[in-house]
């Protein structure tokens, strides 16, 4: 079982490896180095090429993709209805790009397609890092804030709470992220409960054959 990871930074990639292993319940082999995008629009631009590359040139079984929602629509249970697609929802968009890309690829390396495990952190991955430490930081709190026009926190505030500064060095940011995800290492259920955007990722991972 081999996974590949497309993320926006080395910090995210390092933390996601821990979170993915927490969901699966065992250490996993990741394609290295990880694929890196320069922000959301770049994730969408790169995704088809990454999928094609993985499908034809590697033995990866699935691609893990995680993006921040920023201020876009949050993926809800309604979006899970068959055939539903929300054009402003990044989870819907990522799934659609995966679907459209892999359906045109001929089978290769003994598999029909590279599977996907897609998550969207609301509003940013630092919110996931704070799960279990700050009870007020949840996806529900963010949605409620959007509905009432009073955001409970900003992305900059989340970063400050995780890193203690708005200009963390790379090693410091990685150390902080790893310290925070350590809480989820043995039981990610709280993270899945508070952040459905992570639960969708976890569900995708559990659906990958032979992952456990």
């Amino acid at each position: 079982m081999k996974l590949a990871l497309l993320s926006e930074s080395l910090v995210d990639e390092t933390a996601l490896r821990v979170l993915v292993a927490a969901v699966v319940g065992r250490p996993l082999k990741f394609a290295s180095p990880g694929f890196r995008a320069r922000g959301w629009p770049h994730v969408m631009q790169l995704l088809p090429a990454v999928l094609r590359h993985l499908h034809f040139n590697t033995d990866a079984d699935a691609l893990v993709v995680v993006a921040d929602s920023d201020d876009t629509a949050v993926h809800t249970a309604r979006h899970e209805a068959p055939g539903y697609f929300h054009p402003q929802c990044r989870l819907c968009q990522l799934r659609a790009v995966h679907r459209q890309t892999v359906k045109n690829l001929a089978p290769a390396r003994g598999r029909e397609q590279v599977l996907r495990a897609v998550g969207v952190a609301v509003p940013a991955i630092e919110a996931w890092y704070l799960c279990g430490r700050e009870a007020a930081v949840t996806e529900a709190a963010w949605i409620e804030g959007r509905e009432t026009g009073r955001a409970p926190y900003t992305r900059a505030q989340l970063k400050l709470r995780v890193y203690g500064t708005d200009r963390p060095s790379l090693p410091h940011a990685i150390a902080c992220a790893l310290r925070e995800v350590e809480r989820q290492r043995h039981d990610p259920r709280r993270l899945e409960h508070d952040f459905p955007g992570f639960a969708f990722l976890a569900a995708d991972l559990r659906a990958v054959p032979n992952i456990h």
Partner: peptide, 20 residues
């Protein structure tokens, strides 16, 4: 390009020492 974050961090060490 992937190393540029380290370069920026080195400069931030100078301009924002308290963050380091």
């Amino acid at each position: 390009p992937r190393s540029l974050r380290e370069v920026r961090d080195a400069l931030y060490r100078l301009s924002h020492p308290q963050a380091h």
